[in-house]
Structure formats: C-alpha cells, structure tokens
Computed example of a mutant assay.
Amino acid sequence: MTPKVIGLLGSPLPEGNTARLLARAVQGTKDAGCTVELVPVTSLDFQGCQEMFFCRDHETCILDDDMQQIYPKFVDMDGLILATPVMTMGIPGTLKAFMDRFQVFFMAKYLRNQSLISPDRKEKRAGLFICISGMDIPEVFVGAKLTTRAFFDIIDCQYRDELLINGMDTIRDIATRPELLDAAYKKGFAL
C-alpha cells in the first residue's frame, strides 16, 4: 500500500519561501513513492475551538466546517510535513487555531483512552517540521517547536526530523540558497 503523507502549509503566503521549501520536501516524498495531499491551512474555512467539549464523548467536533473533512485525512495519513514561518516567536494564528481544533484527537487519546490511531500504526506515523524565521536569534524556534511537538503527539505522529532556517530577512529569497531547498528535498525523501 502506498504511504499517504499530508503537506500542511501554515504560511499565509501560498508562493512564499515556506511554500517553496514545502514543495521541495513534498517532491522528495513523492519521489520516495508516497502520495501527498497538500493542505494550505489559510485556505480552509473553519472556526477556532469553542471548547464546547462535544468531542469529549464523540469522535468529531460539533462545529460544522472544513475540519470535518480534515479529521479523516489525519487519521488515515502515514506521515506529515508541517511547514510554517515563525511569527511572534511562535506559529501563525491560523495554524494554531487549526491545531487547537484537534481536541477531537486529544479527547480520544487522553480522556477516553481510545486513540483514533490504531496501536499498530502509531509508531509508523512520521513527521517532518520545516520552519523559517526572519530573525537570527538563538531561541527563535523554541515556541514553534514546542507547539509542533505537542500537536504531533496529540495526533500520534512521531516528530522524526526538522529543517529550521533562520535569518530569512537576510536571505529574502530561498531560491538563492539551493542547498536549503536540497535539504528540504532530502528530508522529504527520508520521511
């Protein structure tokens, strides 16, 4: 069976540097024999979590929006490539709101003790985190990494690898750094 991977774009710029890095990682994943579905978060129509706790007892959310079609894809996937820029020492708000809507997975796993992912698939699900930052400071990725690790844990996807690129305000155009695009490709292939 062909492994299914989701390429999750957290950037509001569909043709920006983050999207180009994701595209290279996705190409690597495809070249390794996987099928990939791109999910640009900012193109989805969804609300933030309202903490209604309907998902405490159900495998879905009470809010009826695009997330209803997203949940089954995240159950069926074998891998995830999450690509995002850093914003205010964390991830963009729309991506964070998207992650917060995975309370459906959280409640199943931690409250009901009935993860939506079967035990035999948990260890096989792998994740790659690609993140860029304009700033070149030591702690710039800490918040984004913690949030991503928590999200991967909630959806039972192992945080396997990362590509963190700072100094993008100086680089400006990722196309001028082919070694970084090659690194994204190789990490996608390895996933």
Rank of each mutant, 00 (worst) to 15 (best):
N17G: 09
N17K: 09
T18W: 11
R20L: 15
L21E: 04
L22A: 08
L22D: 10
Q27H: 08
D31F: 00
A32H: 04
A32R: 13
G33I: 04
T35L: 11
E37L: 08
E37A: 13
L38N: 07
L38H: 01
S43V: 03
S43Y: 10
S43L: 05
Q47Y: 02
G48I: 01
C49D: 07
E51N: 03
M52D: 03
R56Y: 02
D57N: 05
D57R: 03
H58P: 03
E59P: 05
T60I: 01
C61I: 04
I62G: 01
D64I: 15
D64E: 14
D64K: 15
D65M: 12
D65E: 09
D65Q: 06
D65L: 13
M67A: 09
I70P: 05
Y71T: 14
Y71G: 07
P72W: 10
P72T: 13
P72H: 10
K73Y: 13
F74R: 02
F74H: 10
F74N: 07
F74Y: 15
D76S: 13
D76C: 08
M77E: 01
D78Y: 09
D78Q: 11
G79P: 12
G79C: 12
L80A: 12
L80K: 07
I81R: 07
A83C: 14
T84C: 15
P85L: 04
V86A: 13
M87T: 11
M89T: 13
I91M: 15
G93N: 08
T94F: 12
K96S: 12
K96H: 07
A97S: 06
A97W: 05
A97D: 14
A97Q: 15
F98E: 01
F98D: 08
M99Q: 15
M99A: 10
D100N: 11
R101A: 03
F102A: 04
Q103H: 06
F106I: 01
M107S: 00
M107T: 00
M107R: 00
Y110I: 06
R112D: 04
N113G: 06
N113D: 15
N113Q: 15
Q114R: 15
S115T: 12
S118D: 06
S118F: 00
P119I: 07
P119K: 00
